[in-house]
Design a protein around this nucleic acid. Structure first.
Lengths: 213, 213
DNA sequence: GAAACTTTTATACGCTCGTACAATAACAAA
DNA sequence: TTTGTTATTGTACGAGCGTATAAAAGTTTC
């Protein structure tokens, strides 16, 4: 009498998604070292052998999890932005506030980001993903900045606009890092407030940060 | 007849340093996964058993390498700063320029930083080191800023000064990250130039970035 | 130069790793 | 109901891991 585990078949999409999520959970728990095929499979509720049925090797799974993470962070930072009604300035403020609050700025995302980033030299494809997501985020910043400047009637060269994108992106990245490192070092909303103030200063615009009476 | 490897004894300090440097080399080469006791020992030119003679376990060696890395980066960012003769404004400019050029902003440091950072959730002591070095760097920024504002006769509260430190640190961290990721995306000196411009804007001072005629 | 001491080597142990693959259970088609 | 397909399991393999420890070699002490 055999006593094999009973199971139910699932769609390819669900299985891949389960494995990716399990990978994220392992990485969050204990870094890359925690993300072994066996542990990932256990968290996903399948046996280790199945992983190779959906991913050619471990690197492919890690890369998929990295892509998924970056997509999630990008989406979280832009949550509600498409539907947002208001001026370009309001939209930029909304984006900065969203990016620097717990939906994006939290230790889970930081752990995932740091762990995957550290593999850019070990897995060539990771470096590609890294660069792609960086440029995507920076372009997101740049477009919002462009709309604000256009709204205010300011003329600006393409090169200058790119520089603004680089600076605003740096500011948000830096504040995000600080907040992820130690949320408890900062009173709630402080980093978002500082983000608004510094972007305002860098772009030489007014009305972005709230007057603090 | 035995054929043991011949060797010469070395001072504790040299051996520890060799092992720490070897650890850094391994991490630079292929991330944390590359930094096994055996490989580290091979790079350091000793046998694996010796590692345990100088470090109680692997985590201790990794932590020591992390501390060393942070010390090196901090020193590299402040290279020549103590001996620097000039106004507080010149000193701040010097610091920003140094921090955003290849002595500090390079892929090796980035690889080390990212790899070690990713272990903050796996090795408790790493989180401590992370926070310590973050605060040390931020305080460095803050002190430079304070001197500039004092030089210009600007009154400022302690809280406001801290906010400046947080913002300047975020800017430098963010630009450093961008540069490490892909130096070739930026023309030489661009990020330092943008660093000067944005810090100038954030602090609402003048004369930090060069006029670009 | 013999003895004591400590650095260093060398080997072994138990574990986990990524991968490979044959057996089998679940489901779809006929 | 039978047959065919494939998603899934379970086991095996070789390699590398961190650690422990006894033996040996280098150095110092007397």
């Amino acid at each position: 009498m055999s006593s094999r585990k009973t199971y139910s078949r699932e769609s390819e999409h669900k299985r891949r998604q389960d494995l990716i999520i399990a990978t994220q959970q392992c990485v969050i728990k204990g870094g890359i070292g925690e993300a072994s095929i066996r542990r990932i499979a256990a968290v996903a509720g399948v046996t280790p052998g199945l992983v190779r049925h959906y991913f050619p090797d471990k690197d492919a799974l890690i890369c998929a999890a990295y892509r998924e993470t970056m997509d999630q962070m990008f989406a979280a930072a832009r949550l509600g932005l498409e539907q947002f009604q208001g001026s370009a300035l309001d939209k930029l403020r909304y984006f900065i506030n969203t990016s620097l609050q717990t939906g994006v700025m939290n230790s889970h995302y930081h752990q995932l980001w740091a762990s995957f980033t550290s593999l850019t030299c070990a897995i060539p494809e990771m470096a590609e993903i890294h660069r792609e997501s960086y440029l995507e985020f920076r372009m997101g910043c740049q477009d919002l900045v462009e709309a604000v400047l256009h709204e205010q009637g300011r003329q600006i060269s393409d090169k200058e606009l790119e520089h603004y994108g680089i600076m605003v992106n740096a500011l948000l990245d830096g504040l995000w890092l600080e907040g992820c490192l130690a949320m408890e070092l900062f009173s709630k909303g402080l980093l978002a407030e500082l983000g608004l103030r510094s972007v305002e200063a860098v772009l030489a615009i007014k009305g972005l940060s709230e007057p603090q009476n």
